[in-house]
Design a protein around this nucleic acid. Structure first.
Lengths: 126, 126
DNA sequence: TGAATTTTACGAAACGTTTCGTATTTCATT
DNA sequence: AATGAAATACGAAACGTTTCGTAAAATTCA
């Protein structure tokens, strides 16, 4: 049942993961309520999605109680790294430099953010 | 017929665009030959895809001659910026800093690349 | 206990992408 | 012009995602 292809989570799957990362282990209702703050979605739709994500290995389900509790199988950090890594290969032929350039030009960043990025670069010099 | 949603090109669409960006305006056969160097794909499959991409506004077709010639409607630069911008919003809540951090940790980059990134940051200080 | 409520399970429809078979059109060669 | 080769057009199937209606199961509470 485990995920085979290298494709990352879909948009809807990512929305569910973000709720779980932010709120911690949650029931379908909790996730659906949260998602409905941004976009109206039927309860069974969210349920089905989370069941499929469990089959795929994206979520872990505790069904020892009536209201099943779900949590992400992977951390936000790992998942974000994976998504960025996929895009790196797919769009930029593996060049992190090109991706960074695009990220910087795609959105105006503040002097503060530039400073933080420099610090990260400094830390990598070792 | 123009594309409505903000979604970027799909994987296959991107593969076609990359060929056209690299090789310049091309026929379906030229694109299909190029794609088949990496993955076997039927000629009519590529044809259909390029026809749909034309409908979507991703490609521009010159059908004044027998062998239609296609070219991308947008530059690689614009498309890459768009893809990164979408990911920025979708995954990183608009934080370019977070995306850059992930890009740097997703792949080992060289001292040379770090230097180039610093130069980009320097240029933004004005 | 029994009725109402909440949750889960299941199946299928709607949608977009990708693939390809077949028919039609256009061109090149003789 | 006739034949064969190459290209395009068309339709539909296969696939995965997303949506939801309905049924079944579990829980709550009156």
């Amino acid at each position: 049942m485990a995920r085979i292809k290298g494709q990352g989570p879909t948009d809807k799957e990512l929305a569910i993961l973000k709720v779980l990362w932010a709120k911690g282990p949650s029931t379908v209702r909790q996730v659906n309520d949260e998602i409905n703050k941004q976009e109206k979605t039927g309860y069974t739709t969210t349920l089905k999605l989370m069941q499929i994500m469990t089959d795929k290995g994206l979520l872990i389900r505790d069904d020892s109680t009536f209201k099943h509790v779900y949590e992400p199988a992977a951390s936000a950090e790992d998942t974000e790294n994976r998504i960025v890594g996929d895009m790196l290969d797919k769009v930029f032929a593996g060049s992190a430099e090109k991706l960074v350039m695009r990220a910087l030009s795609a959105k105006q960043i503040t002097a503060e953010e530039r400073k933080n990025i420099r610090q990260i670069l400094d830390q990598m010099e070792d």
